[in-house]
Structures are given as C-alpha cells and as structure tokens.
Design a protein around this nucleic acid. Structure first.
Ligand code: FES
Ligand code: FES
Lengths: 171, 171
DNA sequence: ATAAACGGGACCATTTTAGTCCAGATTAGA
DNA sequence: TCTAATCTGGACTAAAATGGTCCCGTTTAT
C-alpha cells in the first residue's frame, strides 16, 4: 500500500537524468545542446540545471567553442544526497533549530530531537545510493529483494518520463 | 554540515503540534478553539488540520455541544509516517512507476529501482518514530547520541515556532 | 574575427500552498 | 423544543514556490 514519500522536484529529476547521461559517457565532454537532444529535455532548462550542477561541484565545465560538461568525479562517488543538496539547496532551516540551542522551550520540545533523528536516517540512506546505481550502471542494487513491490516509486517518475520521451518522441 | 532534507509542509507541522497537544492529554476531548488557544495557531487553520487528521483516522471526533477531538489510538502507536501520509496525502505517483511494470525502457532504467530503495529506507525510518517521541513524552530517543549536532533539523522548525509563540505571545 | 559554448540573472506564467469563511449537520442541555 | 457550541465540507482568495524562457556578457578553438 502506501504511496510516496519524498517529493522530488522536477528540476532534481532532470538533474538525475542529465547526470546519468554523463555517467554513461565519461571522458566525453557533452555540450548542453547535445545533452538536450539525448534527454529530450528543453534546451534552456538543460542549461539551467547544468549551471546549478556546476556550482554544486558535481560536473566540470569547459567553456568556449567545443566546450561542454563532464562529471566532476566518478559516478560511484556521487551520492543521491549530493544531488539533492545541489538542487534542492540549503532550504528549510526554518525558525528555531539552526543547530545551536536557542530554544527556550525544552519543556515540550523533544520534537526537534525526534525530527533530527528522522532527518539523519533519511540522510544516511541517501548517501548509500550512488549515481552509478541511479543510472543503472552499477547493478549491485538488489537491496529491494524480498520486499514485494507493493509500493510505488513516486520518486524518479519524472526521470522515467524523460527517458521514455527519448525513445518515443521522433514523429 | 549540510542542511535539511525532507521539506515538511507547514500544515504537517501544525498537525504535529496539534497531535502532540492531544497526546499530552489523552482521555480529554479538546475542541478546536481550545486547541487553537493552547497552540497559538490560527483557529480556522486548526480546524482545517483537525478535519484532515480525522479523515486520516488519526483523531476521533465528537460532534455537537461539548464536542471535540482526541487521539484515535495511543501516541506510541502513531508513527511519523502515518502523520505524513494523512497530511501530505497520496501525492506524487508521477508518470511511470505506479507499481506495475509498464516501463518499456528497461535498458537505461535501474533508476526507478534505486529510488525505490531510497524511498523504502526513508519510509522505514519514518515508521520508527512515534508521536509519543515527537511530543517528547517517550524519552527513548537518544538515537542521536554520538552524532555531533552538526546538522540542522529544518524539519520540525515550524512546530517549534508554534510552541515558542505559545510561550511568548501574550503582550 | 567568428562562431559555439558556458555563466549569471532577470523575468513571467503556472501551480501549489496557506489561510479564511460560510452554510449545513449534530448534539448536550435548558 | 429551542439554543448554543461543535464538527463537516467545500469554496474562495492571497501569497509563495516552481518551472521555463530569454538575454547579454565572457570564454575559447579555429
Ligand atoms: S521508467 Fe518506470 S521504473 Fe523505470
Ligand atoms: S524548539 Fe527548537 S529544538 Fe525544540
């Protein structure tokens, strides 16, 4: 049963597809237009996402004629967490929290602590998935074995769409 | 370092605060206005959230004069996942996925699988946190021990705000 | 020089989210 | 029976986030 969980933004999904494309072709230096064609994602958008990934240090860019992008490091060493961080940014950090303890309400508050625990757990699992796995290059992901596929991905759906588009869209 | 992760919606945060208030006072049947006062959250909003929680089966409601809300089951048996599900709803389920396999692109797709793994891990950790812990009643959450508080909660921040408001707002 | 790329933003349209409000149904108690 | 206090459902508006596009400047191989 149950549906989803984390709601990945579309941009992040695109990022995954783009990174996967790059991972599939290390050494190469692919330009934004080239990637746009391969992934069937709108060229301006591709450009935007790549810029973000560059700032995040996940891809290396070469400027000038014949410029382009390539992974900054091996796909095995790029974690899902890193991708999320680059795209989703240092969001949240709403109100209190902030790490330091300027919360005068310790009485009722164990809240932050508990959420932190969740947060940490999520984070850890995110570190355990590499781009290589996301790209389907590393086939060492039979972690799902044994768990009947009762649940829907929800996440990664858009990526799938882009990939699908890649195949069909030619007419 | 690093910032956040899951971006909890404000409504979900309110839900946590409200549920925590109810958990702190089982047996009681608190009305929406009463809860609004205790939590310092806007009354209409409180009402709205409670309605959602009711539909989600997390709280039981009594109508009519002297009506109100109370937890549907013990705080120890309500997981963070349940709260998220009730509020965030059966979202996502974008495009492909859907559980069944109508994805013709098995070539490049190991994507879904990897994301599912992440999704599953998150889900599991969410199941491991009870409302009792979130409310700070169950003090068995020293899971964070040993992890220097390098990271910010981000999650739960809003809840803290509401609680804080509770204390300060009187002027 | 020139053409093809990247880089940084501004910008707008659309969608999502928050929050308010109102009209109907329910029920304890006078 | 009548009333007042509640919950229930949904419509509605305002504000914010998101997705996408465009433009202009810089870089660099040829
Ligand atoms: S595209 Fe749907 S699971 Fe791979
Ligand atoms: S209110 Fe900030 S950690 Fe509790």
């Amino acid at each position: 049963m149950v549906p989803f969980m984390i709601r990945i933004s579309r941009m992040t999904d695109y990022a995954t597809v783009l990174l996967a494309a790059l991972a599939r072709d290390p050494e190469a230096c692919l330009s934004a237009p080239a990637l746009a064609e391969r992934t069937r994602i709108g060229m301006p958008t591709v450009s935007k996402v790549l810029k973000i990934l560059q700032r995040g240090g996940l891809v290396r860019s070469t400027r000038g004629l014949h410029g382009g992008y390539s992974l900054a490091r091996p796909a095995q060493t790029i974690s899902a967490a890193a991708i999320l961080d680059a795209l989703e940014g240092p969001v949240a950090v709403t109100d209190c929290s902030a790490g330091q303890g300027h919360c005068e309400i310790e009485t009722t508050c164990g809240v932050g602590q508990a959420w932190q625990r969740v947060n940490l757990a999520i984070r850890r699992s995110l570190y355990d998935v590499s781009l290589a796995q996301l790209a389907g290059l590393d086939t060492q992901n039979f972690a799902l074995r044994g768990f009947e596929q009762q649940l829907n991905p929800a996440i990664g759906g858009r990526a799938a769409a882009a990939l699908r588009r890649d195949k069909s869209a030619d007419a």
